[in-house]
Amino acid sequence: MPSVLALAVLATVAGRPDLPHDRAADFSPVADSYDGFDAAAAEQLRQDQCLMAGVLRLGGPGMFSTAQDALDQTPDKLHTAA
């Protein structure tokens, strides 16, 4: 069975000479696909969101309302609350 599968793959590649053999050069990471993406800011936002989500689960009633209010704010205010 593996030899049949290998033969099928080779026949497909050999039968299609128009396919580029080095396609890795055509691809770039998604983060580089548009201007204005700040990976560090996105990472910080996600860390703050995760921290507040933990407070929602583990904190008492007072902490629950504080975390919920923080998650409804802008990223700067969320970071301050976190």
Rank of each mutant, 00 (worst) to 15 (best):
D69M: 12
Q49G: 05
Q49N: 06
A82K: 04
S33I: 03
L51D: 12
A8Y: 10
P75S: 08
A81E: 03
D22N: 10
P2S: 09
G15I: 01
G54I: 02
P75Y: 09
A8S: 13
P61K: 08
D18A: 12
L78Y: 14
H79K: 06
L71C: 04
E43S: 09
A70W: 01
H79C: 01
E43K: 05
D35K: 14
D18E: 12
D18R: 05
F64L: 04
A14D: 13
D38R: 01
D35P: 09
D38K: 02
T12D: 13
P2V: 07
P2C: 08
G54V: 00
D32V: 02
D35M: 06
H79G: 01
D48G: 04
A6I: 13
T80W: 08
L71Q: 00
D18W: 15
T66K: 11
K77T: 13
A67L: 07
V9N: 02
D22E: 15
A24N: 06
G60W: 08
R46L: 04
S3A: 12
S28M: 13
A70V: 01
H21M: 07
P29G: 05
L58I: 10
D72H: 13
A6T: 08
Q73R: 15
G60D: 01
Q47A: 15
V9A: 09
R57G: 05
A41H: 06
A24I: 10
M63V: 09
D69P: 03
V30F: 14
L51Q: 10
L19V: 13
A70M: 00
D48I: 04
F27K: 07
M63C: 03
L10E: 11
A81G: 03
L56T: 05
P20V: 11
L58P: 03
A81K: 07
M1P: 06
L19M: 07
A14H: 07
L19W: 14
F37M: 06
R23T: 15
V30M: 05
L7S: 12
A31C: 00
G62S: 10
M1L: 15
D18N: 10
C50G: 12
Q44G: 09
A42P: 04
V30W: 09
P2D: 11
G60N: 03
A11P: 00
A8K: 13
A11C: 09
P61I: 09
A67D: 02
A40G: 00
G15A: 01
C50T: 14
G60M: 02
G59E: 00
L58F: 14
S33V: 05
K77S: 15
V4K: 04
